[in-house]
């Protein structure tokens, strides 16, 4: 335990830094600190150390990737963006909590639309694997045929393709995906629809 009386100003501050960084545990109250200033300084130093630990700007390349998104979502997936419609979110049941209905908050529905195409997704937690969710999709393709419609799921963060499925004749499909955020690409006969950043889980 340090002897507060014998410490000079520099040593006292060094002691406070040790306390703030966890290198020392608090000792007996400092008799010279009747106003609690030392305690406040330790608190302030802790905040500063926290700020230093999380400091650092994101890489410029990260900022550029994120900031070029509206124009580049399709090109990131290697598509001709002229032929790709970007679907917009129009419905999200998350946040609608049914009182007394256990589990209601973990199953939710998302609805997206673009140019006569409506995409309805039901996201259900997997019964067997807590890291996955089942997605039951119904895609109303409007005037387009539902034959040979391929749906691809790409990880939003790096565009890796993680799953591919075909719509059945009724416009339905079911896939199981790890929890995450995905860009969903729907390849219709004459055009494609991109649903960016679909949150699963």
């Amino acid at each position: 335990m340090p002897n507060h009386e014998s410490m000079d100003d520099g040593q006292r501050f060094e002691h406070l830094v040790d306390l703030a960084s966890g290198a020392q545990v608090p000792d007996a109250p400092d008799p010279k600190d009747a106003s609690g200033t030392s305690t406040k300084i330790v608190g302030a130093l802790r905040g500063i150390l926290d700020s230093l630990r999380v400091s650092g700007e994101p890489e410029e390349s990260s900022i550029l990737r994120a900031s070029s998104m509206p124009g580049s979502l399709a090109s990131r997936l290697g598509l001709d963006k002229l032929g790709v419609g970007l679907a917009q979110l129009v419905g999200d049941t998350r946040g609608v909590v049914l009182a007394g209905y256990r589990g209601a908050a973990t199953t939710y529905a998302l609805t997206f639309t673009t140019d006569g195409v409506e995409i309805h997704l039901e996201v259900l937690p997997s019964e067997y694997d807590g890291d996955k969710a089942e997605i039951q999709a119904h895609i109303d393709t409007g005037d387009d045929e539902t034959n040979d419609v391929t749906v691809r799921f790409h990880k939003t963060s790096d565009s890796t393709e993680v799953s591919t499925a075909q719509l059945d004749d009724g416009g339905y499909l079911t896939v199981s995906l790890p929890l995450g955020t995905y860009d969903m690409l729907i390849e219709l006969e004459s055009r494609s629809v991109l649903v960016p950043a679909v949150e699963i889980g």
Partner: peptide, 8 residues
């Protein structure tokens, strides 16, 4: 990246 994609 994902957070800004969701924001978009």
């Amino acid at each position: 990246q994902t957070s800004f994609a969701i924001l978009f």
